[in-house]
Simulated scan of single mutants.
Amino acid sequence: MKIPQYARYEYCYTKSCEFLEEFEIKAFPINVLEIVHQQKWGLVSYSEIMHKFHCDRKTVIRILGSSDGYTIWDGTNYSIAYNDDQKLGDRTRFTIMHEIGHIYLGHLLDFEATKLYRGSLTKRENRVLENEANAFARNVLSPVSMYLTLKNKSAINVARTFGITTTAAEARIDFINRDVELVRHLKLSEKIMLVYHRFMKKRKCIMCDAQFFQKYKYCPICGNKNSLQWGDGKMIYPKLETYEDGKLKECPICQNEETNIDGDHCIICGIPLVNICSNEECSHQVLPSNARYCPICGGETTFYRRGILKAWDYDEDNLPPESGFMNIPDTAMYIPDIDEELPFN
């Protein structure tokens, strides 16, 4: 396949939406290092290369043929190198996402000219691929839906909000009208708005540090009332694997795997296979398999009451000898009301 004559901006924008959806981006600035780690790609800074091979930065730039970053495919995995020179400013996030763009857009696999060495490209070919990677990085790091909701759209605030340089922020501002038109033309408005909704619906519990994407009244993990506020939680409490209707795929007590049948109880040991609120007056239906409490009324769930789930702060290594579970107070700790006004400036 030959490198196209012009940058495929429609393709780049579609792929950026797919990327935001695939990685469920919901926090800004985006943690690009975490994405690289998840994909198990190699990542090295120019400084590390300089130290390993006892050379200066100019030599690294000359050998790699790039003053910003470079990506190679060795037939098995990708490896990204990026220029971490502090004189360049805070360019690391954009540089790495730019290189991810080369990967995600198929630049290193789709074109014969790039399979061996990107440095062999003509200036025109290189410019096309660089423009595509820039468009991808811009629309991932600062999606249209997120930019448009900013109250302060100055380059300085855009740079601070999305963790990019003021130069990259100015490019985002300059290209916003064209990117908006592309969203409409490609009929991606609904998908790109999902990024905004994921961001706005974030909730964290300040007691157990759980993270959610619904506005609950009670924390479904620790049961505290008024402990949920906007933001990113750090703790992810594992869920038991379920079918789409919320029924467990395997009984947690007897390990019976024949659960995709009529009824909500295990046919071997009789344990409930669907997690619901134990309060009969509560209208809430099926709950997540890791919920200890109902997020609507605060009542205990069937999984928690039957011992399938332990208390959120259960510590197996520090239990008193006479107890199988930690003693949890009958009443939830009081926490004053929290102002939930979102801090998106």
Rank of each mutant, 00 (worst) to 15 (best):
Q5R: 10
Y9S: 01
T14H: 12
K15V: 14
K15M: 14
S16A: 15
E18S: 14
F19W: 12
E22T: 11
F23Q: 02
E24I: 05
K26W: 01
N31R: 10
V32F: 15
Q38R: 15
Q39N: 13
Y46I: 03
I49K: 05
M50D: 04
K52T: 05
R57L: 11
K58N: 15
V60K: 00
L64I: 05
S67C: 10
S67I: 08
S67V: 09
G69P: 13
T71D: 06
I72H: 04
W73M: 07
D74A: 13
D74P: 08
G75V: 07
N77A: 09
Y78Q: 02
Y82E: 03
K87Y: 14
R91I: 15
R91P: 10
T92E: 14
I96T: 03
L105C: 02
F111R: 00
A113Q: 13
G119F: 04
S120Q: 12
T122G: 12
R124F: 05
R124P: 03
E125F: 05
R127F: 07
R127V: 06
V128Y: 02
V128Q: 07
E132W: 10
F136P: 07
A137C: 10
A137R: 04
R138H: 10
V140D: 01
V144P: 01
I156N: 14
I156C: 13
R160L: 05
F162R: 00
G163S: 07
G163H: 00
A169Y: 12
E170M: 05
N177Q: 12
V180A: 05
S189I: 13
K191C: 04
M193Y: 10
V195A: 02
M200E: 12
K201A: 11
K201L: 15
K201M: 14
R203S: 04
K204L: 06
C208R: 09
Q211T: 13
F213S: 10
Q214N: 14
K215L: 11
K217T: 15
Y218T: 04
C219P: 07
G223C: 04
K225M: 11
N226G: 06
G231S: 04
D232M: 15
L240P: 02
E241R: 15
D245R: 08
D245M: 10
G246A: 06
P252K: 08
C254K: 08
Q255D: 11
E258L: 13
D262E: 15
D262N: 10
I271Q: 11
V274A: 03
E281Q: 12
C282H: 06
L287Q: 05
P288K: 09
S289E: 00
A291V: 11
I296C: 01
G298E: 11
G299D: 13
E300S: 08
T302D: 06
R306A: 05
G307A: 01
L309A: 04
K310P: 09
A311N: 15
D313Q: 08
D313W: 11
D315Q: 09
S323G: 07
N327C: 06
I328D: 04
T331M: 11
Y334D: 10
D337W: 14
I338S: 00
